[in-house]
Amino acid sequence: MLKFLKKIFSKEYTKPKGILLYGSVQEVIQTNKMLETEGFQVRLVAPPPEVRVGCDLAIEFNLIEQEAIETIIKKEGSDPYKIVSTKEMLPDILKRSLIVEIDEYIMCKAGNMKITIDKSGHRIVNISGGGCPDIPYVAEQLYKVRIEEAKNPIEVGNSLCSYMLQISFDALKKKVMNK
């Protein structure tokens, strides 16, 4: 028992991780087992005190697999009370977006995600950067659409790259709407 508790409360990892929070131990155990069976690298941890929601167990996962995990827990009906993720964990890069004017176009970048519109019609002419597989699809959906009328990238894609693209999209939209 002591060994089990030590394992749970150990600070083995220093890398930022995602955490699935549930209201009951049963939900945590069942979901953890399901994710392990699906081949995800998960482990049971004690949730950080500031995000605890009544259960002293939570599931830790590698943030790079967040989208795949969210998809499967939704499919299996195992939605957590909360996922401590992008907004809570070290998103320093999101505080920085940069707008650059190139001839008749305006480009905005956040991290490695860039979106470009033409100055005259505000149409999205290019989306660049990002290694997540939904980005080509998002780019195809938003191409030639006026940024004021375009869907939010995060509604079209669901990856961390889409999330970064949303930051540059919002900054660029704000700039043209305020003009």
Binding site: T14, K15, P16, K17, N62, L63, I64, T86, M89, L90, P91, D92, I93, L94, G111, N112, M113, G129, G131, L160, C161, Y163, M164
Partner: peptide, 21 residues
Amino acid sequence: DQGELYFLADEFAPHPLYVRS
């Protein structure tokens, strides 16, 4: 690309989104 280089340089970042400040 440049953004991904930050990601490779950060030993703990699991994705370019999480590069430390």
